[in-house]
Simulated assay, not measured.
Amino acid sequence: MNEWPLAEFCANVEICRLTEQVVFSDPYKILEYNRWTSPYLDADAEAVRNDKVLKLEVAQLKSKFCEQTQALIHGDLHTSSVMVTQDSTQVIDPEFAFYGPMGFDFGAFIGNLFLAYFAQDGHADQENDRKVYVLFKISIYTWNLFHKKFTSLWDIHKDGPGEAYLHEIYKDLELWELVKQKYMIHLFHDSLGFAAAKMIRRIVGVVHVEDFDSIVDPVK
């Protein structure tokens, strides 16, 4: 790995600390700027704060966020960060970028899709029941495409400068496939965990999503 970009983005300490706080810490304690649809979600917010198993999982996710340097990631990826045309895709707002766990970006993105998906019932009416919404399918398609492209590039660059999985050690075809499979399973698991953490933050923490906040009926 080229040490220069890693060293450069390690300086983004304050921005990373903000993410550590609002995603992995604040939703699990009582703070004046945490908010939710009260009183309807009061019991749910309290359940989050009292869930020991959940907090153990979140602690592991926070540890990975602070300690893993798998790749240069966007750090605040959501659907509003992605500009799409028929011919190209551009990602904007990179001020949270740093070297971290790859699952954080993917988890943040699909978490945003899940939030939009689950908000649809709150926007349904007699003219549009929202049952044909395809957001959940988009999240599946996104992972499948990423999996295909990532493992394909891994195969193409198997003799590259990376030290983690030297091809001379893992060149047996069956072992090579098992290495990739295990890596991608762990990455998928991390992604779902980070997606859940981001969703919790958007529901009972600070800074929500318009998908929920624009629902007119608070009971819904």
Rank of each mutant, 00 (worst) to 15 (best):
L135W: 11
M1F: 11
F136W: 14
G122S: 04
S139R: 01
V48F: 01
E46T: 02
D213Q: 07
G205E: 01
G162E: 13
R201A: 08
N128C: 14
S191A: 05
D51W: 02
Q126M: 12
Q120F: 03
K131V: 09
M199H: 11
I200W: 02
Q86L: 09
S214Y: 04
A97M: 05
K55E: 10
D129R: 01
S63G: 14
W154S: 08
Y165Q: 03
N34C: 10
L192G: 03
K182T: 05
V13H: 09
A164I: 13
Q68R: 13
L135T: 09
Y33H: 14
W143N: 11
L166S: 11
M184R: 02
W4N: 13
V209Q: 11
F150I: 02
D87Q: 06
P101S: 10
I110A: 00
V53E: 09
V207E: 10
T151C: 01
K29D: 14
K180Y: 05
V84M: 11
P39A: 11
V91I: 15
L115K: 02
Q60K: 10
Q21F: 09
H147N: 09
A43L: 08
R17A: 11
H123E: 08
V179K: 06
F24Y: 00
N34A: 06
T85A: 09
P5G: 00
V204R: 00
L77G: 00
D190M: 05
L61G: 09
A7M: 12
S191M: 03
I185K: 14
W143I: 10
A197Y: 04
G193V: 05
K149S: 02
G160L: 06
H186A: 12
L41W: 00
P94N: 11
W176E: 06
H123W: 08
S139L: 07
K182M: 06
F212D: 01
